[in-house]
Amino acid sequence: MWDYSETVKEHFYNPRNAGALPEANAIGEVGSISCGDALRLMLKVDPANETILDASFQTFGCGSAIASSSALTEIIKGKTLEQALDVSNQDIADFLGGLPPEKMHCSVMGREALQSAIANYRGEVWSDDHEEGALICKCFAVDAVMIEDTIRANNLCSVEQVTNYTKAGGGCSSCHEGIEEILAKVLAERGEDFKAAPPPEKKVPGKMTTLERIRKIEQVIEKARPNLQRDHGDIELVDVDGKTIYVAMKGACSGCQMEAATLGGVQAQMIEALGELVKLVPVKPTVKLAPNTLA
């Protein structure tokens, strides 16, 4: 059974704004019955100021698809169309207290229905630019299409590169077989053979001085930052107390639904680098943070 948050369950058991909205003047439809989920979003927009007066949905799909639809209608009611367009799928997931990685696509469907409805209101044609593949990396919710496209676009040839570009494979590493298969397929199209990189050298956990240990910790944090910054987030070392390492998550990473996964990934790298079991604990960002990074 999925590990749904209480909010997801609540919105599934008691969906808000379910049913047809006869006076709707903006309708967005995404998905299909063959895909296993479909969502019709209906909006009543005030033509005078483009404010969403009312919203309702009809959804065929699993528990989190219904909960995501319900959450979406609650989020956008009262917003202008411009404001509504700023709602991301992450906002929907956050509103619900997070979604399991396998279910993030439900929030994506919500956002797409919203774009489609607004396009419908404006007399435009909305086209789906997002194709979804089978979920490969559960730690970071990355699917096969995303990995394949990234390999193609950037001529990647190793799992490590794929991790650097997409985060996939950067956590527990159990998805490396799947990533290697995609690499082998794309490389074969380029007429190349996929060669597995030699396994990383095992570090002998010799005794480190306190200074060496702190430096190592800083190195791991530094290595993790570019990935996070690409997603408008960041991580900062706050303090080290024995086996506990305090870090601050910033920007898009702070409190986001992937925070735990991100922390888990960095913690795994930390353990490997130090050759000892340590725990990463998130704390509130320190005062010396530049304010703009908190936005």
Partner: peptide, 11 residues
């Protein structure tokens, strides 16, 4: 029988 997970909404 329906496993509704990302990208494999296949029955």
């Amino acid at each position: 029988g329906s496993a509704c997970t990302s990208g494999s909404l296949e029955p």
